[in-house]
Amino acid sequence: MHAIHHTDHTILPHPTPTVWNAILNELNGKTTWWHPHNTHQPGPTGPHTTNGTTTTTIHPAGIGKPGPKLHFTSTTTHITPHHTLTQTHTGHFHGTTTYTLTPTHNNTHTLLTITFTTTPHHWPKLLHKLTNLTTKHTTATQHALTNLHHHLHHQP
């Protein structure tokens, strides 16, 4: 079975600390720019510290729409504030997500890179044989990144 391995990028016209905070806020369930495809629920210790966790629920049809949902819990394994956040995840997917932030344009912009390397488990394993989950993953991620652009643009 093929693993899912994809890297999504976007250049945001905001400095790195702003983007970093936006990611942590989303993974802590405080904002909603990854809606309608993903929601996040932090564990007792949030993802902003090593060994902290967050549980992601994937809503393939969108939040509130009927249909099965997929879940995975991510544990932060490496964190360099304002630069890198690495999480390993288990559940319906087993693998690693890495968020990398690189300042550009004299530190006024940030290149955000999200690398998702994972293998589906349980029934999503069958789903992956029937449909291209890599395409679905990147479509949802790029939708979220577009939302992130709007979210940061309207942030006071």
């Binding site: 994809h6 890297t7 990028h9 250049i11 890599t134 991620t141 790029q142 990144l145 652009h149």
Partner: peptide
Amino acid sequence: TTDHTTTTDDHAR
């Protein structure tokens, strides 16, 4: 080979 997606400033992927 690795696959990537990036967005432009007018939201083309």
